[in-house]
Amino acid sequence: MAEPSTQTQAPAGQTSFPPFETQNFPSQIFWLVLTFALLFVLMWRVALPRIGSILAERSKRIADDLTAAQSFKEKSEAANAAYEKSLTDARARAQSIASATHARQAAEAEATNKRLEAELHERLAAAERSIAATRTAAMGNVGTIASDTASALVERLIGKAPADHEVANAVGDALKRRG
C-alpha cells in the first residue's frame, strides 16, 4: 500500500493510487459501518420478514385454494354420480312400466281375439245348421213337387190322372236312379 500522504486529497495526475490512499480509510470505514448497519437493520427487521410473510401467505392461499378446488371437484363428482344413478333408475322404471303395459295390452288383445273368434265360430256353426235344415226341408219337398208335376204332365198327355201311388213310386225310382 502507498504511504499515507499528508494531503487529504491527492491532486489529479499524482502517481498515488486512490484505492490505496490510507488517509481516506477512516471516513470510508465510518460510512461503511453506518450505512451497512442501517441497511442490515432495515433488511433484517422490515424487508425480509415482510417478503417472507407475503410469500408464506401466498403459498398458504394457493394451498387453501387447491384444497377448496379439490373438495368442490369431489362434490361435483358426487352430484354427477347421483344424477347418473337417478337417470338410470328412471330409465329402468320406465322400461318396467312400458313392458308391463305392453304385456297387459297383449293379454287384453288376446282375450278379445279369442272371444270374437269363439263368437264367430258359434255363428258359423248356427248358420251351417240352418242351411242344413233348410236344405233338408227343401230336399223333402222335391218328391211332392215332382209327383204333382208328373201327375199333371201325365193327365195332360193321356187325359186321365194317374193313381197317386203309381206316380209316387215312379218319382221315387227316378230319384233313386239319380242318386
Binding site: P26, S27, W31, T35
Partner: peptide, 14 residues
C-alpha cells in the same frame, strides 16, 4: 488525527 468526512464514497453508499 483521522479525518471523517462526507465523501463521494459515502454519498454512493447512501
Amino acid at each position: 488525527g483521522h479525518e471523517i468526512a462526507f465523501t463521494n464514497s459515502a454519498l454512493y453508499m447512501m
